[in-house]
Design a protein around this nucleic acid. Structure first.
Length: 424
RNA sequence: GGUGAGGUGGAUGAGUGGCUGAAAUCAGUAGUUUGCUAAACUGCCGUACGGGUUAAACUGUACCGCGGGUUCGAAUCCCGCCCUCACCGCCA
């Protein structure tokens, strides 16, 4: 959530930056400033009247003590009159505050200066790439054939048990999941991240704090009986560790990592895009999250990008890093880097990680602050990224490393998997 | 799911209608003093939204789990909800 003070200070600049993010309803900025003006006016007059009531009440108490019943009666009359004006003020304030809050959560975060102009994914900018795209043999097949051939994943069985998009991992397929999760977590904790195993369901307050609510309600599975949401990413429960918290400056940076299954309802498109592991309703992911001093967040962003890049390099997969253009970025993000790996049999790039700086957009909603050396309390910055999402990594590992003898695994996984090759 | 107890500031914990935004202790912090380690003493030490100031000072309102009610006045009384703990039941 943007801070009203930022809108008030430079409404036109805010509108320009919102436009870069392809946000249409720019008049909302002026509406918010007006509502805030109104809110202030109402509060001032409410506070003044309430102050009179409080003072009179105190006096009544003293008069009663002295036995001056008549004097007290007169004051009671006054209080009664003031309170009549108080009621409508209170109601108006509630209305204005609600309008203000509703308007405020509709504004997406402002894009950083480095964010490229653009509206569609085609306008994202490739920052750099690495690894080698393999040349596959003539009989190479996509991963959905490989998972069947080696009996790693049964998609039809998932259909029976739950529905489409809920694959069942079997045997070496299941073990490969476990190996990847373990490796990713070890890689992250070695870099100073503390491991969390969070709840996989959250309450509405948590979903609101990280920005999933109110506007992405339909993308989450909702257990209505208890009003809990299945998490779409570990970012939600883990970032909320620091909701309503005032940290000490020396506690920053907070570095956290967590494995979780991720649940996404997203209807999505059909055909090639959702075939096999490309898009699922439930998948596994390891996430990294940092809460940092505002002056450091852009340096930390680069650090996190380099961290994920090293992880991909260790998996020996061909990858590229994109800086997302304004129109393709998420609602809460100020700047986002996407990581894609090349799926050699499908001959397409698949997104496996997204690393973002949210600046104080999430922390403002969450009220996650820190007390600086000057004793002043201010909002921290939050960042997060995937390291990594499993399904598309698995798709690429299988496709890119297929040989007639089986699927070769990168060295870093062999110890975790207990073998260097997936074969029959 | 049942029964009982309880939710107060960073922590412990007092407070059953006005003198309480909240005692006391601990922790934290600034300073004084004893040569260091350590201790003693003194001050400060919640959050939000306003007014005010170059910035402070100062000042108004709200907040004692959340929401509502009674009252001139509520942490304190009443109602609803949420949560925690204990025991029982069920159970991986």
């Amino acid at each position: 959530m943007l801070q009203v003070s930022v809108l008030r200070a430079a409404p036109e600049a805010v509108k320009q930056r919102l436009a870069k993010k392809n946000f249409k309803d720019l008049a909302l900025v002026d509406t918010i400033v007006q509502l805030d003006d109104e809110r202030k006016k109402l509060q001032a007059s409410f506070d003044d009247t309430q102050a009179k009531v409080n003072a009179a009440s105190k006096e009544i108490g003293m008069m009663m003590g002295k036995g001056d019943k008549d004097g007290a009666e007169v004051l009671k009359q006054n209080v009664a009159t003031w309170k009549q004006t108080l009621e409508p003020l209170k109601e108006q304030m509630a209305v204005v505050e609600k309008q203000l809050a509703d308007a405020l959560v509709q504004l997406p975060n402002l894009p950083a200066a480095e964010v490229p102009e653009g509206k569609t994914p085609e306008e994202n900018v490739t920052v750099r790439s690495g690894g080698n795209i393999p040349t596959l043999g003539a009989n190479a097949v996509p991963h959905w054939d490989l998972t069947k051939k080696y009996n790693l994943i049964d998609f039809e069985l998932g259909n029976k048990i739950t529905g489409s998009g809920f694959p069942v991992y079997i045997g070496k397929g299941a073990k490969l999941q476990r190996a990847l999760i373990q490796y990713f977590l070890d890689f992250n904790t070695a870099a100073g991240y503390t491991e969390y195993l969070p709840p996989f369901m959250v309450n509405a307050a948590s979903a609101y704090a990280t920005g999933q609510l109110p506007d992405k309600e339909g993308q989450m599975y909702h257990a209505t009986e208890d009003d809990f949401y299945l998490i779409p990413t570990a970012e939600v429960p883990v970032t909320n560790v620091y909701r309503d918290t005032i940290l000490k400056e020396e506690e920053l940076p907070v570095k956290m990592t967590a494995y979780s299954p991720c649940f996404r309802r997203e209807a999505g498109s059909y055909g090639k895009d959702v075939r096999g592991l490309n898009r699922l309703h439930q998948f596994e992911k390891v996430e990294i999250i940092q809460i940092v001093h505002p002056e450091k967040s852009y340096a930390v962003l680069e650090e996190m990008v380099a961290h994920v890049e090293k992880l991909l390099q260790s998996l020996e997969l061909p990858y590229r890093i994109l800086r997302l253009c304004g129109g393709d970025m998420g609602f809460a993000s100020a700047i986002t880097y996407d990581f894609e790996v090349y799926s050699a049999a499908q001959e397409r790039w698949l997104e496996v990680s997204s690393v973002s700086n949210f600046e104080n957009f999430q922390t403002n909603r969450m009220k996650c602050r820190f007390k600086g050396a000057d004793g002043k309390t201010q909002l921290a910055h939050s960042l997060n990224g995937s390291s990594l999402a499993l399904p598309r990594i698995v798709a690429c590992l299988l496709e890119n490393n297929q040989t007639d003898a089986g699927i070769e695994l990168p060295k870093v996984l062999q110890g975790y998997f207990g073998a260097g090759m997936i074969d029959n």
